[in-house]
């Protein structure tokens, strides 16, 4: 659906050249939710703006739905853009227009007749759950509602692709979740390809199928969300993964709290994919001569299955504990000894 090849963007500033996007190759499939994560200044916004040519590439090419974006004439580009919706961190609604008229705006741009426009606007208002607010002005809406208007507006012309630039970064956690749910629904029901950039791993975890990690203009790691969570290669990726898999307290705190108290071993179990639901602990207690103490845990749901860590304290004979570890590994759960031995 989207193909980036050797894409670069260099800005000429007073302080010299800034390479915001550095030779990126990337393929995004039809119907998937593709996340791009990176810290501030990594070049995420520049990359997503290159997709619809809000920024023109210094080198390389962008192909969307078979069209080479950088080769299009001005007019062709405008038409191509009508097939690519975009939503923004700060919503970017027209404050002089009501909710309805904001949603109708892209339809006006396309030249859709008034009657059809009204019909489509009503559909969209229902789709994003803003019934009864059509006559309000953006200043009368909450952040979450504004983003719903933004989404409705982006979907007005039935685009094939939706670009989201930090779409939830200005929202509180609960509102973020409701907007993410809406995006997931849209992806499932309309088969829309969604590209979203964020600096929150939580967002990637919750809705993305695949993820690319960006650092200094380059994609340093990419893959299935679960695979990246399982085996983050780069240090940067590991940091992001920790955001969602590790309990608030770190391993060090665990050692401090329980290390001296006579608990022999502390194990970290890492669940990946479908294994999280197995009655693992129950089986250990029943089948082995050990006592098990659950210390901490955090299991998150991703689009490809659950993922998370569980910290347990185990007491018993050393040989028995070794058998427990082997048993856990047999269940496709990764084990790491945090303390003991």
């Amino acid at each position: 659906m989207i193909n980036l090849s050797k894409l670069s963007k260099v800005f000429n500033t007073k302080d010299g050249k800034v390479t915001a996007v550095d030779n990126i190759d990337l393929t995004i499939d039809e119907g998937e939710i593709f996340g791009i994560i990176g810290y501030s200044g990594a070049g995420k916004s520049t990359l997503i703006r290159l997709l619809n040519m809000l920024e023109s590439p210094s080198e390389g090419s962008v192909t969307i739905a078979g069209k080479k974006m950088e080769d299009l004439s001005k007019r062709e580009l405008r038409e191509a853009r009508q097939e690519i919706g975009m939503i923004f961190q700060h919503f970017n609604l027209l404050w002089s227009r009501t909710v309805k008229d904001n949603i109708a705006f892209p339809l006006e741009i396309k030249g859709v007749p008034k009657e059809e426009r009204d019909k489509r606007v009503n559909e969209l208002i229902r789709l994003v759950g803003l019934e009864g607010r059509g006559g309000s002005y953006p200043s009368q809406l909450s952040g979450g509602q504004k983003q719903r208007v933004g989404i409705a507006r982006a979907l007005a012309n039935n685009p094939k692709v939706l670009l989201c630039d930090e779409a939830t970064s200005a929202l509180d956690p609960k509102t973020t979740d409701s907007i993410l749910d809406l995006l997931t629904d849209i992806n499932k029901n309309l088969g829309l390809t969604i590209v979203l950039i964020t600096h929150e791993m939580h967002v990637i975890r919750k809705i993305c199928h695949r993820v690319a990690v960006m650092e200094q203009g380059r994609v340093v790691e990419q893959g299935n969300v679960l695979d990246v969570f399982k085996r983050p290669k780069e240090d940067m990726t590991k940091e992001f993964v920790k955001q969602v898999t590790e309990p608030e307290e770190t391993e060090e705190t665990l050692k401090d709290l329980f290390g001296e108290e006579g608990i022999g071993h502390i194990l970290q179990l890492t669940f990946v994919g479908g294994d999280a639901k197995k009655p693992l602990i129950n089986n250990i207690v029943r089948s082995f001569d050990v006592t098990v103490n659950i210390l901490q845990g955090k299991i998150s749901q991703t689009q490809n299955g659950p993922y998370g860590s569980l910290f347990i304290g185990v007491d018993g004979e050393a040989s028995e504990i070794n058998r427990v570890k082997d048993y856990i590994r047999e269940q496709q759960v990764e084990v790491e000894v945090i303390h003991g031995e």
Binding site: L54, L77, I84, M86, L94, S96, R97, P106, E108
Partner: peptide, 29 residues
């Protein structure tokens, strides 16, 4: 006028004259 609003209009495929008459003038009215 917020630059983001102009950018959003461009991302929707608005022409320059549409941006002037549908965005710039109404938003600064």
């Amino acid at each position: 006028i917020d630059k983001g609003v102009i950018e959003a209009s461009k991302s929707m495929g608005a022409s320059n004259s549409q941006i002037i008459f549908k965005v710039l003038l109404p938003e600064s009215m």
